[in-house]
Design a binder for these strands. Structure first.
Lengths: 188, 188
DNA sequence: CATCTTTTTTTACAAATGTCAGAACAACTT
DNA sequence: AAGTTGTTCTGACATTTGTAAAAAAAGATG
């Protein structure tokens, strides 16, 4: 759990008291590769910190899943739309590899927002950060070509290219695996 | 300014004291149609509440601007990426119509986050809400065709279709005005 | 009202991607 | 090692969109 406190300390100061309140709510879970964490239509009840492993977010499709996001070690993850609104999720979450999570429930987190000062600050900064990521992605999807988006992955997220199957990356870029294959051929 | 307090009250309770601290920082500004509020490369120093009017967010291009967002009456607006990071903006903001804003500076807002409880709560909920909007948009851009995105504007944001020039809507959907014109012909 | 400017539509052609089918290749299982 | 499964690549063809240029329609200005 030290990873988590380190993560928080990078964001804002946190008293021992606030940390104790928060950490007492965390429950550890371990999952095998390709385990579904949340099915489409279910409501996300947890926010999870990834101690080990990786996760993909996707809309299941008969032929090709639409994979639109990945989460890695030392990050928080959740079907955050569903978590925030407490409405059924429009997408699914699944482990890519063997994964260890520290999980807190929605209700416990709301209590923390009410009782601690650090809670709201961290909650705000986390939401602001997620907003920035999505805003950047919106601009990439509107402004850049598929080829540019692929090349930008190399410079901005090289680990992603190494670890993630191409068919998922194709989805993330917004094209089919066939189209990505053509792009790779073109630029090589 | 009553509109603003009404807006806040919908989000969370706010004491008179917190409201007085906040509202004392607001400055009113009026702008003519097609006035540039923030140029590309400048850092956004204000968060603004729109009392009257409408605004577009865009990346300027020689042939066709890439317009990716609109803001209307009774909403807060800002080049929020630049505002949060206090780094130069990658896009521009401009009034579409005659517009009246109530503006607060970045520094004043940080003080409010520090001194009031309601500040962090509203800040968190606002950021969460903006995240939800961008997340929804990411899914639309990846999952839906241009035609579906256009049709969804009719059901989800009919006012947008009425008030905004088609060439800006085309940009927002992620296609050229010519392509949008073809789609309109196809579905009529 | 006439003129000028901007927006929207149209056309023809080029480029990119989707779709479908199959082959090549890699990974995993037994 | 052989067979099974899943991933990546290739090719042919249909669809969509981009691009460029021009016409039509709508708005703005004097």
């Amino acid at each position: 759990m030290n990873q988590i406190r380190t993560y928080f300390e990078q964001i804002t100061e946190m008293s021992d008291e606030d940390w104790n309140i928060f950490s007492s709510k965390l429950k550890k879970s371990e999952y095998k590769k390709k385990t579904t964490l949340l099915k489409i239509g279910e409501t996300e009840t947890h926010l999870s910190f990834i101690e080990k492993g990786s996760i993909r977010l996707f809309i299941p499709k008969t032929d090709n899943d639409l994979t639109f996001g990945f989460c890695f070690k030392d990050q928080f993850m959740s079907a955050y739309d569903s978590f925030l609104t407490q409405k059924p999720s429009t997408y699914q979450t699944e482990t890519l590899t063997e994964t260890t999570l520290w999980k807190i429930t929605f209700n416990d987190l709301q209590d923390i927002y009410k009782t601690t000062k650090a809670g709201d600050i961290i909650g705000r900064l986390a939401a602001e950060n997620l907003f920035l990521l999505k805003a950047k992605r919106e601009q990439a999807l509107l402004n850049d070509t598929a080829e540019e988006r692929y090349l930008n992955l190399f410079t901005e997220q090289p680990h992603l290219i190494k670890e993630i199957p191409l068919k998922y990356l194709a989805s993330y870029i917004g094209i089919t695996p066939q189209a990505l294959s053509r792009i790779r051929k073109r630029i090589s």
